[in-house]
Write a protein that binds this DNA or RNA. Structure first.
Lengths: 105, 105
DNA sequence: TTGACATGATACTATTCGGTATCATAAAAG
DNA sequence: CTTTTATGATACCGAATAGTATCATGTCAA
């Protein structure tokens, strides 16, 4: 799966986005992430795998635990794709605003 | 479904992102969008509905045709959510780069 | 070594999703 | 009015997805 697709796919689930928010504060083990959800560790592990496939997190082993960390480069493809539209949408938005202004007068 | 969720959901499918790319050039009817894919108009229509639910496009009727247009404000919630990480990830990336530089010396 | 703990992996289930086929509705053309 | 064209809506199918349950593996501590 192309990087941009796996990343968008990973971001599409609210649980996974919540996990990313948690990891912003500090690195967490699977068990620590799972404490914050009402689902099994196995389910959380699956979400972490999807996030890893999407390049949004990296994992490293520390003893018998496994730490999950935000990947600083992971959001790149997503931002690049969106910025392509952002320019266009900024332009459109400006036109929209000027239309509204024109209607007011 | 909360706006940010329906928007991320809409962006998760490659066909729907391709549709957004097409609509960047000009507004298109359902039939015109469907010409570019090897699937039925009904399938394309479903994708357009998901994009509309996500606030990424708007539709207006012109006679018996229905024009699909990029919504300039639609990407807002998505960008806002991502920017929350972008700051953080920019910071991390800077640290990562400085680490690499340090290793070089 | 033995036991406890954290994770990995697999099989299984219910739901969602992408897609097709089909029929109904509405507008333009003659 | 009748026909054609563009879309709307619904039922259905197969694949992917999110989740659980269960068992295997590996590591820390005593």
């Amino acid at each position: 799966m192309p990087p941009v697709q796996s990343a968008f796919r990973a971001l599409a689930d609210p649980t996974r986005r919540d996990i990313l928010v948690m990891l912003r504060d500090r690195d967490l083990t699977i068990a620590e992430v799972a404490e914050n959800f009402e689902m099994t560790r196995a389910a959380v592990k699956k979400h972490l795998t999807v996030l890893s496939d999407g390049g949004l997190i990296t994992t490293r082993t520390r003893g018998r635990a496994r730490l999950n960390t935000l990947n600083p480069t992971g959001i790149g493809p997503v931002m690049d794709w969106l910025k392509y539209f952002d320019m266009f949408w900024d332009d459109r938005l400006a036109k929209l605003k000027s239309e509204i202004e024109k209607d007011k007068t």
